[in-house]
Design a protein around this nucleic acid. Structure first.
Length: 490
RNA sequence: CGGAGAGUAGCGCAGUCUGGUUAGCGCGCAGCGUUCGGGACGCUGAGGCCGCCGGUUCGAAUCCGGCCUCUCCGACCA
């Protein structure tokens, strides 16, 4: 079909192997996840993309609530003076602030910052709300949009405005706050791996990479299809920095005044981009069933009107049976499209399982099931109508599991230990390099400049002892702070 | 902000160098007919402030000046 090739040029996405960035923007737009907005750096999240976010959101929200957190909503505007209260915080965020100077037709007395994050607003409120140890811990989360002015935006991965949740907690002791920070990190890792099928490495950020105003920042780092790293979510131990800046004090059991210990943590719409990049292939999106807005799509095949009637009736029964089991099913009833077109269309949109139903299937009371995560003929197998629901449930579970395994295998194949700087240089061309590192800014900057790779994290698993005795930085020879991954990153 | 590209129909582009009736092509879209188990085809049709502002000219998508926007690559970041 010679002419078909031509139309493929306009309908297909740029092959992933050819140009990874182009492939990514193509997929996001053609799969109807998002579109550009009139203002640079801003994006319109379309229903299909928003549904992915809703999947991530509900998985997180359920877990936050199960661990005692409650949702609230804090304002969009922050007085400029609030941001300036914590020295390191303002230093870090100043370059990316959007500031409102006018309101109601006249210049404001004090400029208002459009929130880039809400530590300061929570700090001010917590100072008023917390009086006694009986008020602790304070465990609040909010779902909100934030604005950080971006030089170089990228759909989902880096937009000037993005959606996220930000948790802000206050505790009586340091230990409790650290425990909270790590508990949330575990939730992020679980949602990323179990729901998004994106394996992560849990670690601690270097002093340079940590959040502005935090004592420690913990992260989950995941690997994209081109072996670059993506920071999936962060959880910060803020020590008493914000408690001091906002005077958040409480009376303990001994009637002594103490500063609280706070944490903050966030996961963003960037995660949608991570799902695209970690799983997508040349044909487009591949979605893990747990968050796929459509888990099963039914594609009808027929020639005559009689066949159509029979196929539609049977497909309707199949749909009803699956829906009764809470499987998200879509029956493609669009007119005038060939089966082949539909196959490609739904594959591009990443639907995990496709059911082909034609006259042969109607006659045999069966459906042809095809899984998106497996290439070629092995992807297809015929399933009987009787017992279809459990068979599909098993299939979806298997797809979910094997997508995580595939991603993990790919990730592990691109993790390498580096004994020397030369090793690192070679490895970061196509992977992550694990080295003993000093953790200093100068050394990180040098590596960044010479290799474009940045310090991703000091994996928690691999650093039972910090500042390991006798070990030195593989790059500069200074005493090692710990073992860190370096990689190209988004 | 630095470097590189690009703005002409919903999308992708040609036309611009060398100014000249009615601005084309492919895809998509609408109607009709034939198709239909891996991106179908025919016929008919709708759809345009040629990014914006100004200038040159009898005449500008095309030449000149200014501005705006987007994409990609770098410095910053979730």
């Amino acid at each position: 079909m010679g002419k078909g090739r031509d139309s493929m040029a306009t309908q297909g996405v740029t092959p992933r192997s050819e140009d990874y960035s182009r492939w990514y923007t193509d997929v996001v737009q053609q799969a109807d996840l998002a579109d550009y907005a009139p203002v640079r750096g801003c994006m319109i999240i379309k229903p299909y993309g928003y549904e992915l976010w809703e999947g991530i959101k509900s998985a997180l929200d359920r877990r936050f609530k199960a661990t005692g957190h409650r949702n609230a909503y804090f304002p969009l505007f922050i007085p400029m003076s609030f941001i300036e209260k914590e020295a390191e915080h303002v230093e870090g965020f100043k370059p990316e602030l959007a500031i409102v100077t006018h309101g109601g037709g006249s210049e404001l007395e004090e400029p208002l910052v459009v929130r880039p994050t809400s530590e300061t607003l929570f700090g001010e409120a917590y100072a008023r709300w917390i009086q006694s140890y009986r008020d602790l811990p304070m465990l609040i989360n909010q779902w909100a949009n934030v604005v950080r002015w971006e030089m170089r935006p990228r759909l989902f991965l880096r937009t000037t405005e993005f959606l996220w949740q930000e948790g802000h907690t206050a505790h009586a002791t340091r230990e409790e706050a650290v425990e909270e920070t790590l508990k949330i990190l575990d939730i992020y890792a679980e949602v990323s791996e179990q729901i998004c099928a994106v394996p992560v490495i849990k670690g601690r950020k270097s002093p340079q990479e940590k959040f502005a105003g935090a004592d420690d920042t913990y992260t989950i780092e995941s690997m994209m299809g081109n072996a670059w790293a993506l920071q999936g979510a962060t959880s910060h131990f803020l020590g008493q920095n914000f408690a001091r800046a906002f005077n958040i004090q409480f009376l303990d059991e001994k009637n002594e005044l103490q500063l609280v210990w706070t944490t903050s943590w966030g996961m963003t719409t960037r995660t949608v981009g991570a799902v695209v990049m970690a799983h997508g292939d040349d044909k487009g999106l591949r979605l893990p069933p747990a968050i796929a807005p459509i888990q099963v799509v039914i594609v009808p095949i027929f020639k005559t009107d009689d066949e159509k009637t029979a196929v539609f009736a049977f497909a309707g029964e199949v749909k009803a049976q699956l829906e009764a089991a809470d499987i998200r099913v879509h029956f493609d009833q669009r007119e005038g499209l060939s089966p082949g077109f539909r196959f490609n269309d739904w594959e591009m949109r990443g639907v995990p399982v496709r059911l082909e139903i034609g006259p042969r299937d109607v006659a045999g009371k069966s459906v042809m099931a095809c899984r998106r995560d497996v290439p070629g003929k092995e992807a297809k197998k015929s399933l009987a109508f009787d017992g279809l629901t459990p068979a599909i449930q098993t299939l979806l579970a298997d797809v979910q599991k094997s997508m995580l395994e595939t991603a993990r295998t790919f990730r592990d194949e691109h993790l390498h230990e580096a004994a020397t700087y030369d090793d690192l240089k070679r490895i970061v061309e196509d992977g992550w390099a694990l080295i003993y590192h000093c953790g200093t800014r100068e050394c990180e900057d040098k590596i960044k400049e010479e290799t474009k790779a940045s310090s991703r994290c000091y994996p928690l698993d691999l650093n039972p002892e910090w500042q390991p005795k006798g070990k030195v930085c593989a790059v500069c020879g200074k005493p090692a702070f710990g073992r860190a991954y370096f990689a190209r990153a988004y």
